[in-house]
Design a protein around this nucleic acid. Structure first.
Lengths: 248, 248
DNA sequence: ATGGCTATTATGTATATACATATTGGAGCG
DNA sequence: CGCTCCAATATGTATATACATAATAGCCAT
């Protein structure tokens, strides 16, 4: 069971009290009612509100802290964390930071932008059950004068309606989304691929050249938010991830 | 039997009791001492062993269950779970399990084995400061009749002296190591690469074909243990990793 | 002011206890 | 023999309580 697992209470599922407290608070955070930085009620306030012991409240809050949704500070209280608090793996995919870490100038250029009703492929990529409006974007990240990565993205407009108003001409959709949509879960798929003609053209490599492909699906409170595919020429990119045995 | 805080010598960190219990059990599982399916001690047994209350033991076991390392069954006890799909992919990367999950038969064949004093490249890969004995291995993992992955591995014999006695003819070094050396940290590098002639030959693909390369360095208690490079033909492999936000 | 002390506060960990709940092994009955 | 029902057992949740620890706000003396 993941800590940021959501059960919609509508179905009438039986939750233990600490699970309900956790779920209530998580909902307030993911829905944005409690913005990053907001101080959530003290344990003794929640104790009064739910009419339960402090241990029960503590269990819920400890789990939220471990899941990274809140930060707890002695004497000060518990605070909603800023969504920038991403796992290392995601930070690696803030391409601006990667490029600037190499000492090169960064630039994003939009290639395509289409608003449409999701087709079957869109829904498969996003993990959507029903049709709905989506925004399809394609753009190129530059390191200096050279193409660094090609980005192909779908945004679920049912989850992020404001995205429909954005042009994303020079703003990459990744950073834009991170500032607006707290994510609760993400799935990565990483593979190698030979560049087809379109990709080779965009990235300025030979057709058939090996590329690293990183795909990411992101959910917020069980709702699919976005699917993105980054395509890197093999020479330009290595993913690095460091692990210790989980939990702790 | 009071509020004793125990220091865990091996990381030098001060762990609370429930964290120490959790860490001890996790160690037994990850090192293979307690194999999948093994019943771990009952709460009341751990209570006696650590001389603490059941709540403390329960906290540790609940977290292990949440992390997916164990499964808890009322009236029956708690059991080590069989290796899982997602987290295991990056954490353990056991190719036998991947192959068998595809419904194919698995086989490992050693290609090369050389014991030598580490040269500069070996030391760079392993992260060693001083020269010392290393074991260099190359082997091929098969899925059915087809090559599935090429493995190139260095083992630091100063850290794992017993490895010098092993031939690794049909035993892959990965599982062998996991059973002997509990790892405390691992670093992955993932990239795409075109197959050179040797690789193409071993994997039975065309030269220049795109491959996914996963390199892992592993430490145990600050000592470099092994460096391994897995090379997969692009068609045969996708890495999947699922994350929830967490600091770390 | 300003550096140090103290009291206060919220969280962190642990205890002992209680009862609920799921599951199993076995006793007893048809 | 097969079935039901019960008692035993291990985990699941919650309680009230206790003391530890980190951080801060405010006070005091220099």
């Amino acid at each position: 069971m993941s800590l940021v697992e959501t059960d919609d209470v509508d179905g009438g599922e039986i939750l233990s009290l600490h699970q309900r407290i956790l779920s209530d608070i998580r909902e307030k955070i993911l829905s944005g009612v409690w913005a990053p930085g907001h101080r959530i009620p003290f344990e003794h306030e929640l104790t009064a509100q739910y009419n339960c012991s402090r241990m029960t409240v503590n269990k819920a809050l400890s789990q939220l802290a471990k899941a990274g949704l809140i930060e707890r500070r002695r004497r000060s209280g518990s605070f909603v964390r800023h969504p920038q608090s991403q796992a290392a793996v995601l930070e690696l995919h803030d391409i601006r930071i990667e490029v600037e870490a190499l000492g090169l100038s960064y630039r994003y250029v939009r290639l395509e932008r289409a608003k449409r009703r999701s087709d079957a492929e869109d829904r498969a990529l996003l993990g959507l059950a029903a049709p709905g409006p989506v925004l399809a974007l394609e753009g190129l990240h530059f390191a200096g004068e050279r193409p660094f990565a090609l980005e192909q993205r779908l945004i679920n407009l049912s989850a992020v309606a404001e995205a429909a108003e954005e042009e994303f001409i020079e703003i990459a959709p990744g950073p834009w989304l991170i500032g607006r949509v707290p994510w609760s879960e993400a799935e990565h798929r990483i593979r190698a691929m030979a560049a087809d003609e379109n990709i080779a053209d965009a990235l300025d490599v030979d057709a058939g050249a090996p590329c690293l492909v990183v795909e990411r699906r992101t959910w917020s409170a069980e709702h699919p938010v976005t699917h993105v595919r980054f395509i890197y020429p093999a020479e330009s990119h290595t993913l690095v991830a460091r692990f210790t045995p989980s939990q702790g």
